[in-house]
Design a binder for these strands. Sequence first.
DNA 1: TTGTCAAACTGGTATATACCAGTAAAGCAA
DNA 2: TTGCTTTACTGGTATATACCAGTTTGACAA
Lengths: 242, 242
Amino acid sequence: MQEQLVGEDSVPLYMRVRDQLAIRIEEGSLTPNTRLPSERILADEQGTTRVTARLALAQLEAEGRIFRSNRRGWFVSPPRLIYKPTQDYSFSENVISQGRVPATETLDVTPTEINAWLATRTGLAVGDPIVWLRRRRQIDGRPVLVENIYLNPKRLPAIETYDFNRSLWKLLREQYDVELQGKHIEMYPTALVGPQASALGVTIGTAGLYVTRCSHDAEGGFVEFDEEFWLHDALSIQVEVY
Amino acid sequence: MQEQLVGEDSVPLYMRVRDQLAIRIEEGSLTPNTRLPSERILADEQGTTRVTARLALAQLEAEGRIFRSNRRGWFVSPPRLIYKPTQDYSFSENVISQGRVPATETLDVTPTEINAWLATRTGLAVGDPIVWLRRRRQIDGRPVLVENIYLNPKRLPAIETYDFNRSLWKLLREQYDVELQGKHIEMYPTALVGPQASALGVTIGTAGLYVTRCSHDAEGGFVEFDEEFWLHDALSIQVEVY
DNA sequence: TTGTCAAACTGGTATATACCAGTAAAGCAA
DNA sequence: TTGCTTTACTGGTATATACCAGTTTGACAA
């Protein structure tokens, strides 16, 4: 039987700091993409230390309410993009339809060969030619995903000569008369590391969502395999089944 | 121009500790559900402090490779359960088919009323009766999700009198002749907080995946609305589209 | 006005330490 | 053997501090 800490002290300090900030975000005094006070200032305001302030910030980050920009500060997360992987073929159109501004950058285009990992996913044989496309996509100027796209050059001759900063889906339809049909989608939460983290300009270990999509054309031939690394707070996935 | 730290020191210490552990997991000297050395021991082994050891552990946790059990220690994550929300109707059958052992606990059954939030999701009116069912589900003895299920008592009379520790899907089919048809699924990564975190026995703020599923019967009538809170490392979602 | 550079500021990483709150094991008593 | 209590151990929370590595800003020079 102890005279234990009660009331406000039954909740850890870092959670109370979290709550303070969460209220400011909900009230609207901190709006999307606004910078939060710096960690040192937060710690002073709350009469605590940076370590504890960082715990509170990490908590809000895990909830998807704030994000950090490397050595620039913490910012309020904008609303999640609604993403319907079974329906949406165009990232740009989807972003625009939700009143946001999309941007796409092609990071790299490399003709290469199918490895064992791709072979099991695409149905092609190890050593078959494949075109590896790497893109970064933004919403309202914030990079939210990087993707590795593997295109079947047998089905899409000279694909590497096109401009990939526009809609890939339109390119396939208009230049190759491909209508994507079957899709196998897989996704799970994980941490962003290595080239993905640096391409998105986030700290190694930032929470992300990993999505792969394997598409076939109407005849069932393999067209493209897509591997997407999203910031975990940037999207909400919706699937309709009938 | 500085004589800068090179080689191993260009990688942060906590990442090197992470790598050490990751190797031990990949090699198989640390197998799923094995306890890792305690934070203090890890710190000693690596010649560093608990704070840094915890950074390394948090990194692996974010990647979904290890998980923690409150004040018991850190453990190697078992493989993710493959979950096909568009096809799977039975959690238990799905778990068994992947060679694992499922368990379901009913936490609570409460007849209540539709609130504004549920009204927009179910299509029912505020104040309509609804049965609120709360369950926890395990894989191989580890709680991996809690769910709030809202059942339509108009479509499912006396539903609250049944045993919910078995398959809900079978119950609906056998007792009410309901074949679930249309589904609207929504999901996004977030942190587990409040009752969800405590029901799963995890620290507040643990990464999770939030999934909602609204099901209708063949005639389009609302049957049930399901809200699931998963541990982020426990599942991989697969969707097939044709 | 423009460009450059230094200073101030930001988060990132790290050490050292302390006490609290649950868990689990050891030891002891019935 | 059984049940209880003590003890050791675990992660959880917190303070105080320091230096590093990029970003941003402001002063100053051209």
